[in-house]
């Protein structure tokens, strides 16, 4: 790698850093309880919640750090934090 003049570079370099390995607890959906309110997607600080075609959501575990905000904020307790097996 050579340093470009002025440090101008392609954006999105954080995508290369898969930070999910940091996680101790992983969030898991219970779609039986989910009412598709979207709060988990809105509140995720790492943009690791993505909508699915059926209107429910899924996690991107490459970047989810397991902070648990989604589980904490879910009004229907549809997200459980499960201990990672490493």
């Amino acid at each position: 790698m050579k340093i470009p003049i002025g440090g101008v570079c392609e954006p999105g370099t954080t995508i290369a850093n898969k930070t999910g390995g940091w996680r101790t607890y992983r969030p898991v959906y219970d779609y039986e309880k989910c009412i598709k309110c979207k709060l988990c997607e809105l509140l995720c600080p790492d943009m690791s919640v993505f909508p699915k075609e059926d209107g429910y959501f899924q996690f991107n575990y490459d970047y989810c750090k397991g902070c648990g905000i989604c589980a904490n904020e879910c009004p229907k307790s549809a997200i459980t934090m499960v201990l990672e097996e490493k």
Partner: peptide, 17 residues
């Protein structure tokens, strides 16, 4: 210019070192 800041072809200017 060597580089152009343009939303159609995003580049980071003044990044972190």
């Amino acid at each position: 210019p060597l580089n152009i800041l343009d939303p159609k072809k995003p580049l980071s200017f003044g990044a972190f070192a």
